[in-house]
């Protein structure tokens, strides 16, 4: 029983931070949506030790595990666009999927290449007593 109270309290706390993020985003006309602002705020609160990770951990783990669920009702909205997708479906598919594949390959490839180079460099410099920092 105590656990479920804790759980609800943690999710309510995350909800509060989300609302605060929405407010900040609208108030300052940020180009960043409220949910991302909320994520940054919570990260800062945790890093500055203002919020202990134990205060939110259980609720956050649950929401992370089922994040996909919250996108399902939105994705069901695709059913209203079947005629458009039928009309120029092939061209759209090639464009959407093609550009996604290009983006994925470049993002992952560049990051992997640079980070493996970086860690090699760091290993080499360990010997000369100082760390290379970015």
């Amino acid at each position: 029983m105590k656990n479920s109270y804790l759980f609800v309290a943690q999710i309510s706390f995350l909800w509060l931070i989300y609302q605060f993020g929405l407010f900040i985003s609208e108030f300052f006309h940020l180009p960043v949506p409220g949910n991302v602002v909320g994520m940054i705020i919570l990260f800062l609160l945790l890093s500055l030790n203002i919020v202990k990770v134990g205060w939110v951990e259980k609720g956050a783990q649950f929401l992370n595990k089922h994040l996909a669920f919250f996108f399902v009702p939105i994705a069901v909205g695709l059913m209203t666009y079947t005629s458009l997708l039928k009309e120029s479906g092939l061209a759209l598919a090639v464009m959407l999927l093609g550009s996604s594949i290009i983006g994925m390959a470049l993002t992952g490839g560049v990051a992997q290449l640079l980070s493996s180079r970086h860690s090699k460099k760091e290993k080499g410099e360990d010997a000369s007593e100082h760390h290379h920092s970015i």
Binding site: I11, Y18, L22, N35, V36, G38, M39, F43, L63, P73
Partner: peptide
């Protein structure tokens, strides 16, 4: 059902931390 999508996105700060 999407009411908790916002808080669920905020919750990504925990693995990030």
């Amino acid at each position: 059902m999407t009411y908790l999508l916002g808080p669920a996105t905020v919750a990504l700060a925990v693995p990030l931390y």
